[in-house]
Design a protein around this nucleic acid. Structure first.
Lengths: 187, 187
DNA sequence: ATGTTTATTTACCGATCTGTTAAGTTATAT
DNA sequence: ATATAACTTAACAGATCGGTAAATAAACAT
């Protein structure tokens, strides 16, 4: 398989899993939609689980790169980027294909605490929280970790409700709440 | 089927779906675990989807009854109940079988916007939000709906993160955030 | 040109999926 | 006692699940 063909496969599999769910998307469909035969898929991934893990890895990279880039485009100070978080998330919610957070959905379908899919999803959230804590520290927050955790709560809540209501309105509610919390934590 | 036998069936199906997921739980397993034959199940529910909808209806009643009861046990004023919300949620997170919000998981697996399962999940959130708005109005909030929406964002975020991290810590972060928002909205 | 690897198609495996059919059992009501 | 309904077991569809084996075609190096 050409090296970039594998990337196309994972990327297309991402769309299928994201749009239809993990259990509901069979490997036959993945093969049909990617044009890669099932035999070839299983040459590169020993199981469906391994393919899902590769998909989640790609999603983590894509999403974090996109988020960080959009935050930097909106503000060049740590505090400004924290305040811009829910404006950027609102952009995401308003994109045509928005269907919620892939990691939340993955851990909802594979909820055993020691399932690799669950662990990798938890890791994604951990990396994001560390980034927010880094920004909070740069902005001079008295307790950067606490502010980061609070922003994470708002972020996950906004994503879930935006997906459930098919509306970007929760981003505005979260934005208002975040502004108050940031003001309180930094001054 | 005896009238209470049907209730036992739905209740046991709830446990199975909640613990294993919806697609991952087959009707054969439901029949085996409930002791109700598959034929009898299909006498009362025309499809798996109808059973799931009955399960969600039961969950909505159970959860809201439990939540309202616990809130009233902790405070007898609207504002007090709003402030107690995340203490009560923390109780939930620390219960042995806690596995996140069933409605979020249901809408994650059946994400088509017009899927009855998705619509019923959205309805549950709507009813809860209306209750919070009622409390906020009783507490004298200047914009009760806005406060209710913000609390919903915190609530969903706390639930998702508690499930993902297998910890009740997000309840404390959400509690602190909620206290600031309530103080700001009511004074 | 020839041998070797690499990828593809096609068909298949056993298990499980939702849902049904047919025949037998149990309980209830008259 | 007997008719009727409720419920059971058991087997069966037809489709799909994740995953493989064998045969074929294309790319490659020598």
């Amino acid at each position: 398989m050409r090296p970039n063909k594998r990337g196309e496969l994972v990327r297309k599999a991402l769309d299928l899993f994201y749009g239809n769910g993990f259990h509901a998307t069979g490997m036959d469909l993945v093969a049909a939609e990617t044009g890669v035969s099932k035999t070839s898929i299983y040459k590169h991934f020993r199981s469906k689980e391994e393919l899902i893990l590769a998909v989640l890895k790609l999603r983590d990279e894509d999403f974090r790169t996109w988020l960080y880039t959009r935050l930097e485009a909106r503000a060049d100070t740590p505090r400004g980027q924290l305040e811009a978080l829910f404006d950027v998330l609102q952009e995401w919610f308003e994109q045509p294909g928005f269907q919620g957070c892939m990691f939340i959905k993955a851990s909802a379908e594979y909820q055993s605490p020691d399932d690799p899919i669950n662990l990798q999803s938890a890791d994604h959230k951990q990396v994001l929280q560390a980034h927010f804590a880094h920004l909070a520290a740069g902005a001079g927050a008295s307790d950067p970790d606490a502010l980061a955790r609070q922003l994470m709560v708002l972020k996950e809540g906004a994503i879930v409700l935006a997906a459930l209501t098919h509306s970007s309105a929760p981003a505005r509610d979260a934005r208002a709440a975040a502004a108050a919390l940031i003001e309180q934590a930094i001054g």
